[in-house]
């Protein structure tokens, strides 16, 4: 889907992901300020709560979508030769995808342990 998000849809995804990230970061920071985990174990338990795992997963998905739209915009602006543009877009996509899988692994492992 995202690959074909051209003008309006890409813009909308960027806005929506930004709003979600702002809300999530607000919630996250508020928790760290009001009820900071006192030990690593406590932190892991909190992160393993289904609500936190799910909202954090959505947060990282939003982050990757946001980054994809933004970096794609930069590449469309400045890189005009099509071959070069394709290579750069593929590199960005691969990098973001790898980070996404890595994050997913960390979040899932946290739940398992």
């Amino acid at each position: 889907m995202i690959w074909r998000a051209s003008g309006f849809r890409a813009w909308l995804l960027q806005r929506l992901s930004a709003v979600y990230m702002a809300l999530f970061i607000g919630m996250f920071v508020l928790h760290l300020v009001l009820d900071a985990p006192s030990s690593y174990q406590e932190w892991r338990t909190w992160m393993a709560l289904p609500f936190i795992t799910v909202t954090a997963s959505i947060f990282f998905a939003a982050l990757l979508i946001h980054a994809w739209v933004g970096l794609r915009d930069v590449i469309i602006d400045y890189v005009h030769p099509l071959g070069m543009r394709f290579v750069l877009l593929a590199l960005v996509a691969a990098g973001l995808l790898a980070m996404g899988l890595w994050v997913l692994r960390i979040l899932m492992m946290g739940g398992a342990a």
Binding site: S6, G7, F8, A10, W11, D73, I76, D77
Partner: peptide
Amino acid sequence: ALEGPYRLFRCH
């Protein structure tokens, strides 16, 4: 006619 990545959405 304004849809697509270029016509309108190059505005940052």
